[in-house]
């Protein structure tokens, strides 16, 4: 017979009701505080896995990042691990091509990476000829002209952004 399932009127501790109430209230406040602490803990992640914690397969895919891996933010590491998962599906040429660009991409500033993603998406809204033409034009430009263009683009983007 399970004693726990029976009413136990005489097993109640003989505590004055006020003290019991205060104790239960304290316990609830403690539980609530623990829950909040857990939330903040869950939101603020650690620094992610260290280089020597990666699997050999992940290390092979992300080899160009080995030097800077331990300094990357946790979210950035998660993103690269996601890329490393797709890496084995590539052909040997594809793997070589990706690794050659990987280190260069990781060296970009966060702002440059955001611009690269934006321009990449914009480039693929154009037919191949227009895309290649834009690349050729850009590579033929002198540095100061490139800077001028970039500045103009920044101003246009600021103008296009909704006023706050």
């Amino acid at each position: 017979m399970k004693a726990g399932w029976l009413p136990q009127p005489f097993a109640m501790p003989a505590v004055p009701p006020q003290a019991a109430r205060a104790r239960s209230s304290r316990r609830r406040a403690l539980l609530a505080a623990a829950a909040l602490a857990w939330c903040f803990g869950a939101l603020a992640q650690g620094s992610g896995p260290a280089w020597n914690q990666l699997t050999p397969q992940q290390r092979e895919a992300l080899a160009p990042l080995s030097g800077q891996w331990n300094t990357l933010p946790a979210d950035n590491k998660r993103k690269w691990l996601e890329i490393a998962e797709k890496y084995p599906q590539l052909s040997p040429e594809g793997k070589a091509h990706m690794q050659a660009r990987m280190a260069e991409f990781a060296r970009l500033t966060p702002e440059q990476r955001a611009t690269a993603r934006e321009n990449f998406q914009r480039a693929y809204t154009l037919p191949r000829e227009n895309r290649e033409s834009a690349v050729q034009q850009f590579q033929a430009l002198p540095e100061d002209k490139k800077k001028e263009l970039a500045e103009r683009q920044r101003r246009d983007a600021a103008k296009a952004a909704p006023a706050r």
Binding site: T115, A116, N119, R122, A123, A134, V135, Q137, F138, Q153
Partner: peptide, 14 residues
Amino acid sequence: AYADRGFGALLQAE
């Protein structure tokens, strides 16, 4: 080129 805002301007022109 992708990482340069100037390239974005050229793409828009295209």
